[in-house]
Design a protein around this nucleic acid. Structure first.
Lengths: 175, 175
DNA sequence: ATACTAATTCGATAATTTTCTAATCATTCA
DNA sequence: TGAATGATTAGAAAATTATCGAATTAGTAT
């Protein structure tokens, strides 16, 4: 999952917000937090581990206890910084989206691209309708492709040529 | 649910983030968004309605379409503003928490408060360990109270006196 | 070493949330 | 008014997530 979404998901939980508010005031440890919030240590541990993995909190042993503390830097970001997708981040991905939105209208493929690179992007998009690991008969393959475009024969053939699908006799599957 | 938590929960969803990113660029409507994101109109509608209820987006009809747009003000808050609980918000609640954390250490009642108001807060805290509607025998009551403090007799008597519990013969229950 | 204590993991369950289909509603335009 | 279209709602299925009890691990102190 994407980094920023993960951060938001972690913050969107009542228990974790309680924990963070306590840690804003002072560092603490599993049993104490469990006691403060009337939850079991297992539950607190579950939340702290999740937040630690995301860099929201840190831990350090001190004698008997493992003391958890806040990583304060995280909290200065604004919501729009977190929500907004950085367009420059993944140029390749952006290009794919452009191609897809150009060739698909309302879920239908308007035209089979002639440029190899674009054609491949479109074929991969169609391939999403097949399940990995499952075997399909030719009739099923045609039917699924047909939802996108009339000429299922060409597209089926191209998917084999691009190495997206494999075939043995009458059976097809995703590679 | 609390306002801020609701906001975070709404933002912590991939589909809604996609929608918001599109709306950052230009206003849109249900069917268009559904097409852009390859989801059904029903799903888009579900998300938009939720966000509208929380004031994240607005809607206005324009001929055939209901145009959704962003409420941009929301996005300038920082995470710590959202996470941090406003201490001044509920003074009464805060006082209770102070009393409770003063008299309970590691889940045990260290001392029975002499001040009536504080004592009552402590008794209500103990009362949380009893189920509403269930009947308890005196032995059970003692046992539960004993987890908090040795002198279960005094506490049991006080709970009756404060009107937290009621009793008939050997049977006790929460009021 | 051994007994103790706090932290963690595992497996199961309960609760919440997203998504879809199908049906209904509301508005526009002929 | 009625046909068409977009939006919404209801109900069900699927996916995700929080919580707990029990078992295990890791570190401390005697």
């Amino acid at each position: 999952m994407e980094e920023k979404l993960k951060l938001l998901k972690l913050l969107a939980d009542e228990t974790r917000i309680e924990i963070l508010n306590i840690l804003m005031r002072e560092d603490s440890y599993v049993e104490k937090l469990a006691c403060d919030l009337s939850l079991t240590p297992a539950t607190i541990c579950y939340h702290l581990k999740k937040m630690e993995a995301a860099g929201i909190v840190r831990s350090a042993r001190s004698q008997f206890y493992i003391i958890y503390s806040l990583n304060k830097e995280i909290f200065d970001k604004t919501l729009s910084e977190i929500i907004r997708k950085d367009d420059t981040a993944d140029v390749e991905e952006k290009y794919k989206k452009e191609v897809i939105s150009h060739f698909f209208k309302y879920g239908k493929l308007t035209q089979i691209p002639t440029q190899r690179k674009k054609r491949e992007i479109v074929l991969w998009e169609i391939a999403k309708s097949f399940e990995k690991g499952r075997k399909y008969e030719e009739k099923e393959v045609n039917e699924i492709i047909h939802r996108f475009h009339e000429d299922h024969c060409t597209i089926r053939r191209e998917m084999l040529a691009c190495g997206i699908m494999a075939r043995e006799r009458e059976t097809y599957w995703l590679i």
